[in-house]
Design a protein around this nucleic acid. Sequence first.
DNA 1: CGGCAAGATTGATAAATGTCAATTTATGTT
DNA 2: AACATAAATTGACATTTATCAATCTTGCCG
Lengths: 235, 235
Amino acid sequence: MSLDINKISVKNSLSSCFGTGLDSISGGDEFLSLLANHADEVNITADNYLLNEGELAEYVYIPISGSVMLERTASNGSRQVYAFLFTGNILGLSTSSIASYNFSAKALSDLSAIRISRQLLEDFFRRSFEISKKYHTRTEIVLSAMLDHLFVMGQRTAHQRLAHFLLDMENRLFCHKGQYNLPMSRQDIADYLGMTVSTACRGFTALKRKGWISIASNSLITIHDKDALEHYITD
Amino acid sequence: MSLDINKISVKNSLSSCFGTGLDSISGGDEFLSLLANHADEVNITADNYLLNEGELAEYVYIPISGSVMLERTASNGSRQVYAFLFTGNILGLSTSSIASYNFSAKALSDLSAIRISRQLLEDFFRRSFEISKKYHTRTEIVLSAMLDHLFVMGQRTAHQRLAHFLLDMENRLFCHKGQYNLPMSRQDIADYLGMTVSTACRGFTALKRKGWISIASNSLITIHDKDALEHYITD
DNA sequence: CGGCAAGATTGATAAATGTCAATTTATGTT
DNA sequence: AACATAAATTGACATTTATCAATCTTGCCG
């Protein structure tokens, strides 16, 4: 199956997130072309699951359009959202090739993604050490991002965590003059940051009152004072 | 330099921790022997740092005796402890070969560790895909453990997190009839679990009052009712 | 063995966050 | 545009956790 590589955005290469730019794992165009010739394209509609925790981890995915949320739900119903992934991010990194997925992936919007068999990926790695190295460096970057998130979760207040999240999204989403659209609900944000929806809402309100952000239509966020936010999250 | 491989414990292979058993990354004895012939041994005394955040990441370490704590301290003094590592655990996994350490490693006790150059490790990987695969599977297991910890941090109360920690330590430390010695201070535990020392202490007291644990001498813990603890942490 | 210093525990209180219900606002449909 | 529905926000109150100081315990060292 053929695929137009140019469709894959290389934005979102930054910071505390699971996936980062596809560009960063390529061993030059050679790798991308290789993948493109062996990748399927999958499409699912909003609110459906691309994969489920516990399923045999057969594929790695890269969203072409739309966004995805990685999550785990416990038996008592509590849910932790692990990450939000956007176009060009890689999904499936954290799963060993012999094991099953340790999270579920839910589409936040209608989604197109390319899908590469882990077996095939492994064959590429076997043939090219350089490609293997790029890919594994990428995994290590994800681990590093997890450390950042863990720090914030353990050492910051609910409102600070929210401010941190908004700055992170400003880096990763398409943003014009400090304005961007959040693709996830308040509940998703709350479950990502380990707080209730009420607390998340009060956080938004608090940041608005300080004049650091404004909210036009629930999902449309404008950052007015990035410096203040950055200072706020470090205490 | 020569090294007695038998000194390296293969316990601690379980659960939510950074490093896990060295056995799991070996490509059979061949790999261990290879490393042993190229490894240095380093020794440092309790409370000193094996490596510091920001330093060029030149080595991977494996403690032979003693234990280590990985941590990050922010400019305002708040500290997140990322992991406790014991003998046989691998230290340095989460750092890309071209970057610097993204945490510091502090000895909890007098420590001996073997030290392998990342450059050398990479040479091994280049030569043997199988060794590379084992190593990177190990990294993915660490990432998976981080997800477990993140879930607990985001979705559980302070006392539940403490109970979870005590069960984890029971798996990983030398334990006889439910009794084991914690090598870290209350402050370290609190910083690992994202709470204050006071809250950690109250947690210990609460678990004692329920009759699920007892504490002989601050560091000597006995688990009396593992089932109750396991039920407690899932709500 | 006694005394000291550091670490651990507890108490009183304040602050942060959760709970649950009411209300408001946004979104999608005719 | 009006409605219906779901999502977001807020208020009142309960619970959890932090803060800070006092007290107790442990481990260490002479």
